[in-house]
Amino acid sequence: MSDFLSILWTQRYMVTAVILFCIGTFSLIFNPNLIKKLIGFDLMDGAIYMMLTSAGYIEGRIAPIVTDFSATPSVETYINPVPTGLVLTGIVVSVSVTAFALALVVRIYKKYHTVYLDVIMASMKKGVD
């Protein structure tokens, strides 16, 4: 048991990412409010980014920004730059998706006068086109 706990402590960033991902999933699937669904989506994004970045972290090394140009940079000094680059791309895409989805929410409110998905579905069942 203490073995398991110590592994959990070593993987603390990944475990937090898992918890955040599950909270986001809960909000995305089971909250009827469309804006909170989007917040859940963003939380899931953040969890994935955290997991990727923590996979590239190496204990005791620094960020890959060279300040000493006299020698060839050695691999032992810097962390893995690949996950950071991937996440940098991902953040841009996530803000684009958020803006697009919020525009859709505004249009939905214009048509149905609510942001609750269950009310929208009940209205559709009652024949509101």
Binding site: Y13, D42, R61, A63, T84, I91, V95
Partner: peptide
């Protein structure tokens, strides 16, 4: 996590723009 690029981007985008 030693990713200052991400820190700047997240502070500008996550806390600002979105």
């Amino acid at each position: 996590l030693q990713a200052p690029d991400l820190a700047i981007t997240e502070a500008a985008v996550g806390a600002g723009v979105s």
